[in-house]
Design a binder for these strands. Structure first.
Lengths: 348, 348
DNA sequence: ATGAAAGCGCTAACAG
DNA sequence: CTGTTAGCGCTTTCAT
């Protein structure tokens, strides 16, 4: 069927060991035989069987990337940057999509373990279920989390400072005069959302604005979930004058809903979104955001994983890297409408 | 180090073969021993080593996905749909990004071959270089192309009817009264762009509008390439009254440029984009598009590949599947400006 | 510098 | 129904 190193060796008139040395560029071998083997390999159209090699060396040059949804521009962009760094070092990415579903994630992690990936990058779907992540670590695979901390687990992580990002955003809204600020995110079983919620709460607290439970809303992770929740928030009895959307999907759903319901942004409701999108600049109004430097995050993740896979012991354990996000105020944020009867001017 | 089937067999007090049968659910085995083995495996925390299994069975349950840029929403969305269908059948996706660079693509295909993927889905970066794709096919891997035909190669493909999509779009512009219609795409070494150009040309021809070489422009595949080209097109001596953008990246670049240059859409220039984006609806004006039903494309690709991997011989060879796109006219298309001295009313 | 041979973890004849 | 055994293609001691 396929051409093996055995065929190459025979063709070149050398032993399998010599052929292996020639093809793998290791050990002692005469230039003469090396050339012979290389030529034979070329002539026969030989291509190495990495699986067989992996079985003996124990390394696959493959890393697993486990995320909620590869269609989400946040993950797609992250994948691009991670891949860029990893591909340069000869690694291939196996992408596993979980639909933010823990059972799928567990399946994915074990499947990837079975496929003997050298490392895994995971954006865990749940704060509370991590036995599979522990199992992967214990089996000797390098694991680094991205975007979402697992406070109960000692494992490397790279993420944006979500607390600060949310805090800055909400503080900016408060400075504009808002006191009725809504928070909308997807599941609070996801660590980054919890951190963003904490930032939101702290900003309100520091401004002595009472926390209103009705202003904190969560929904699913898809665009349509975001849309539905937005419709309910915008049509609620007590509509906030500003909304902090904890992700691009939530913000997009809200924009779609606002358009359909003829709610004016920012005249009636201000908006700040987590995640910057190229097209946010194109909207009328352009959208204010907490931008995540995904290039930096992706590179940091890749670099850290690479070091772990190479067992670089100059690293602390675990390594926790926080990348600062930055607030960009555009046109979707403005002072609250004058007619708002609940207007509560900021103290500052 | 790790727990193997040998350990499980010993623990359960059976032979390796029996353990393998129990774990793999095949052959004859008593319920009693099966339970024993399963329990031992569970107790020991055994996880199968798929690589070793693959080495003997010759199948990996892995498929390679070779695309230009996973960050491009077109590919990201495609990946999602393909993955959905494939994951349901137990396959994992290895994503290889080529940056639309043939050398990278060649490297990727050979790397994936070495990793013994059962199948590959490729959006080839070049019309002319396909020896590597042939090699993959010849090595027994199921290969199906997506989005881009390779006319000189007998290989399965699923793609949108690019000719028709472009034809319909340009015809719609002509009906609105345009005769100075620009075409902007990335590389014409990419089959789908060529097909779209052909559709553009044919629509002009059928309306007896002379083809102007200066109205056909190509550029790179990134957003910034699209932006730069758009600036030059919009500031050219003879600016078209309508532009057909052959991809979402090109269209986005053009929108960004139009905003920066204060060019009014559609008052001064009409625009139709290939690829529909959720946010196109949110812009002012909303963007007219040739929408590609990516869910259908992704599912068709996955289904076809699955059949090939299973050697379903009810299939023709090669199988060529065209999915019809559909034109959605929104607000970015309007009659040309009255002041245009070159106005050439449609004949219809 | 080169070759013989062991073995990575698993499946699949084959024999019993 | 169960166990023994021969590989899958490759790397890597260990001799020579």
């Amino acid at each position: 069927m396929s051409i093996t190193i055995r065929d190459v060796a025979r063709e070149a008139g050398v032993s399998i060991a010599t052929a292996s040395r020639a093809l793998g560029n290791y050990g002692y071998i005469s230039e003469e035989k090396r050339a012979l083997v290389v030529e034979a390999a070329h002539k026969l159209g030989y291509h190495p069987h990495s699986l067989a090699k992996s079985l003996v060396t124990g390394t696959t040059n493959t890393v697993g990337f486990v995320v909620g949804d590869i269609e989400n521009p946040f993950f797609a962009s992250l994948a691009k940057w991670v891949n860029l760094s990893l591909a340069a070092e000869g690694y291939t990415l196996m992408v596993y999509t979980t639909d933010e579903n823990v059972e799928d994630e567990v399946r994915g992690v074990y499947s990837l373990m079975g496929k003997q990936v050298d490392g895994m990058i995971i954006a865990p779907a749940s704060l509370h279920e991590y036995a599979h992540i522990l199992a992967a670590q214990n089996s000797g695979i390098a694991v680094v989390l991205v975007d979402r901390f697992l406070p109960n687990l000692d494992v490397d992580i790279v993420a944006v400072d979500n607390f600060k990002g949310a805090y800055d955003a909400v503080q900016a809204l408060i400075k504009l005069g808002h006191s009725e600020i809504g928070f909308v995110s997807d599941s609070l079983d996801i660590a980054s959302n919890v951190e963003r919620l904490e930032g939101y709460k702290q900003a309100l607290k520091d401004a002595h604005i009472p926390l209103m439970a009705g202003f904190i809303e969560t929904t699913g992770y898809t665009l349509i979930d975001g849309y539905r929740k937005a419709v309910s928030v915008l049509s609620g009895a007590r509509r906030p004058t500003a909304i902090f959307a904890a992700s691009n999907f939530i913000a997009t759903g809200l924009l779609l809903a606002a358009r359909d319901m003829d709610v004016q942004i920012p005249a009636q409701v201000s908006l700040i979104s987590f995640d910057d999108m190229e097209w946010y600049k194109l909207l009328t109004p352009s959208i204010s955001v907490v931008a995540q430097p995904l290039e930096k995050v992706g590179q940091a993740v890749a670099r850290l994983l690479l070091k772990r896979m190479r067992k670089d012991d100059r690293l602390q354990y675990p390594e926790k890297i926080r990348i600062p996000p930055h607030l960009i105020l555009r046109e979707s944020t403005a002072p609250p409408p004058q007619t708002a009867e609940h207007l509560n001017p900021p103290r500052s």
